[in-house]
Structure formats: structure tokens, C-alpha cells
Amino acid sequence: MQTKLLQEHAQMLLDTAQVECVIGYSLSPRGLTRPMFIYRGEDVEQLVWNQHSSHNLAKYLREKIVDLGDTGKVAVVLKPCDTKSLNVLVAEHKIDRLRVHVIGMACSGVVKDNNQERLQDRCVECEMKQPLVYDYLIAAEHTPEVSPGEFDQDSWQTEFEDYSSEQKAEFWLAHFDRCLRCYACRQVCPVCDCPTCLFERDDSLWVGPGSSIQEKRMFHLGRAYHLAGRCTGCNECERVCPVNIPISKINQKLAQVIEGEFGFRAGIEAVPSPLLTVVSGKEYGG
């Protein structure tokens, strides 16, 4: 039913020229749910909304707005968690909120990939069922039939806190060792959007293009620092990793620290991270 409401609303937006493009989800010929860009009212039937709608479509907003030139609006289908990314992008002046029409979806969780029926870890304990920001809300009529996950975030974190530094290093280096440096994690991230990534400079200033464990560690930890206070925990990075590196665990840890130190959670409001704006303690030079 949400799909039907979504299609009707998208059609209205396009037919009345309120937006030039609707970014949503459609099914591939294999039946996989994937991002879709709709420009004409007659094509809205391709839009779907289902428990595989995992992709964080806020990722596409910046480039789509650039594509459209100086004027024109784009509509985007966002889950409650995706609206946090929108807030970060707006707070950082990456996108102009006035050029985005947010179709907010009430959500009861998405599953990991098209072959699995289990809720994603992040969805298991998620209490955000309504989008934080929307121009049009499509409410949930029923809870999708998915079994709850078995993942227990608290116990994992607690267990990990007991590790020694050496154990933590061993754990992470074993995971990073598999990294292909394919950059899927970086590319899929809505807020990882530097014009030139420091890990991909032609002059290898900070890190070379090789695949040694040091370079992989630099990439993952460097990326995590750059996302501190900005990562909203959509975990798309982890979903897309071809070699199952539990990337989100690093980001979650940093988010916890920042919440503890600053009382700040990225994306709850459209304000920039205190890590970029607040000077405190020793940073005063005292």
C-alpha cells in the first residue's frame, strides 16, 4: 500500500512539474530492489517500496541537484534513518533544502540483502519509525513480516570494550586484511563526499595506492575520523562491503564517544557537528 501511495504522490509531483526528478526504488529484471530515477509521470509504476529498500538515497541528492542546474527541485524517498543524512548535508551546506522534496517513509526496518529475510542489525533496536524531516509522509499500514535479528549491539560493545589494545588491533587488522580498497564503502556514503579523497591523491601525500595492511588501516581509520560526528549510522558502508568488514562498529564507537563528550548525535537536527564548531578545554590553548 505504501508503494501505491508513493506512486500516486510521485505522479502528482511530476505531472504538476513541482519536481523534475523523483529518486526512489525500483526492481531490477532479476527482482533486486535498487535506486531508480523517474522523470515522467507515466513511469511512476516502476517505483516500489519494500523491505529491501536499504539504499540511502540521500547519497544521490548532491549530484542530482548539480545536474538540474540553477533551479528545479528533486524529490527523494527517504527512510527515517536516511533523513538524518539529509540533516547532516543541510547543516554542512552541501545541499539546499529548498531544492529537495522529501517523501518520508514510515519504516519498520529493512533486511540485509535480497537473499535474506533477517532485519539488518541497525534496524533491530531502531526506535525511529517516522522520518525526522519530510514534505510528504507516507505512513505505515502494517509491519512487514520479517523476523527480528539476533544481533545484540550492547553485548557486542561490552565484550569489545574488554579487549586489550593488542586484541583490538588484532581484530581490526584481520578484518582490514581482506579489504580490496574498492571504495564501495566510501562511495555509497551520503556524507563521505570530499572532492578529492585524501586516500586517492595522485601524489600519495598521506597514503599510497597500494594494498598493504598499513595502507588499508590508514584508509579505514582515517575515514572513520572524518565521519566522526557526521556518520548517522545508516550502515550502508557495511552492507556494500564485498568482504564483510564490520565497518559500522568503528563508526558506532566514535558516535558513542561523541554523544558522551558533547551530548550530540549526528543528524537528529540540521546542525553541524560540535567536532567542527566547538572549542573546549585544552583547545583554548590554556
Partner: peptide, 28 residues
């Protein structure tokens, strides 16, 4: 254009491909 619109420009397809063979050379 229609197909590429959703592409996120990562390298995953090339890196898992048995025949993709492009490389970069640098002196470090």
C-alpha cells in the same frame, strides 16, 4: 545515461572481475 545514473563510481565491479586488468604505476 539511464543505467549509469545509479552507479556510485566505486571499483567493486572491476576488482572482483576475473579479466579487469587496468593498473596504475607509481614510485614510492
Amino acid at each position: 545515461g539511464m543505467q549509469a545514473e545509479r552507479c556510485i563510481s566505486c571499483r567493486i565491479c572491476a576488482y572482483v572481475c576475473p579479466t579487469c586488468r587496468c593498473f596504475d604505476i607509481r614510485d614510492e
